Simulated scan of single mutants.
Amino acid sequence: MSALPSRELARTLDDAILPELWRRRTRLSEDEMVSMYDLVRRALRSYHPQELSALGEDKEELVAQFIYTKVLRLAPGHTESNACAESAPSNGYALCAYFRRYLIDCLRSASHQRNVSMEDEGMEQEIDLHAHALEDPVESVLMEYGLDEHRVRLAARTFIAGLDEPERIVLAGSLGWCSGCKGGLSAVATQHRVPSYHYRAVKLGVTMKKTADAGDFSNTKIGRWLVNVLGIDIDSENRTAILIALNLLAAESSEDEMIDAAA
Rank of each mutant, 00 (worst) to 15 (best):
L204K: 06
A172G: 14
V206D: 08
L171Y: 01
I232K: 04
M208P: 02
T207E: 06
N228F: 01
G180Q: 10
S196F: 12
G184Q: 02
L185M: 13
A201T: 06
P195T: 15
I222L: 08
I244C: 10
C181G: 12
S236G: 11
L246W: 05
T240Q: 15
N247C: 13
W177Q: 12
D216P: 06
E237H: 14
E237T: 12
L175E: 05
M208L: 15
D216S: 15
L230P: 02
S236V: 14
R224D: 01
C178V: 11
T211K: 08
D213M: 12
N228G: 02
L243G: 08
K210S: 11
A189Q: 07
G205Y: 07
A187C: 04
I244T: 12
V227R: 13
H192M: 12
V188R: 09
S236H: 09
D235Q: 14
T207F: 07
I234V: 15
K209D: 04
S186Y: 00
M208Q: 06
S236K: 11
K209A: 11
V227E: 10
I242W: 05
L185E: 04
L226Y: 04
A245D: 11
A214G: 04
A189D: 07
L175V: 01
C178Q: 04
L246P: 03
L204I: 11
W225Q: 12
I242P: 07
A214D: 14
M208I: 00
F217W: 05
L171E: 01
K209W: 10
N238V: 07
S236Y: 09
R239N: 09
N228H: 04
G184V: 07
K221S: 02
G231Y: 00
A201K: 00
S218Q: 13
A201W: 01
T240C: 15
A201Q: 09
V206C: 03
G173F: 00
L243M: 14
T207M: 13
W225V: 03
G176R: 00
G183Q: 12
V194Q: 04
N247Y: 10
A214Q: 06
P195L: 13
D235R: 13
T220C: 09
L171Q: 04
M208N: 01
I234C: 00
S179I: 00
A201E: 02
G176D: 08
S179N: 04
L246G: 12
T240L: 15
D233C: 06
L230S: 04
A187D: 08
G173V: 04
R193Y: 03
I222D: 00
S218K: 13
S196D: 15
V194D: 05
K182T: 14
T207H: 09
T211I: 11
I242A: 09
S174I: 02
Y197V: 11
T207D: 03
I222P: 03
N219Q: 15
A241W: 08
L171M: 08
R224K: 15
T207Q: 13
S196Q: 13
A172I: 01
N247W: 02
V229N: 03
A212C: 09
A241V: 12
V227D: 08
S174V: 02
F217C: 14
I232N: 05
I232V: 10
G173P: 09
V227G: 05
K182M: 06
C178S: 11
K209V: 06
A201D: 00
V227Q: 08
N228S: 14
R200P: 03
K182N: 12
P195M: 06
C181M: 09
C181H: 07
G223P: 06
A172L: 09
G223T: 05
A187H: 11
M208V: 01
L226N: 00
A241Y: 10
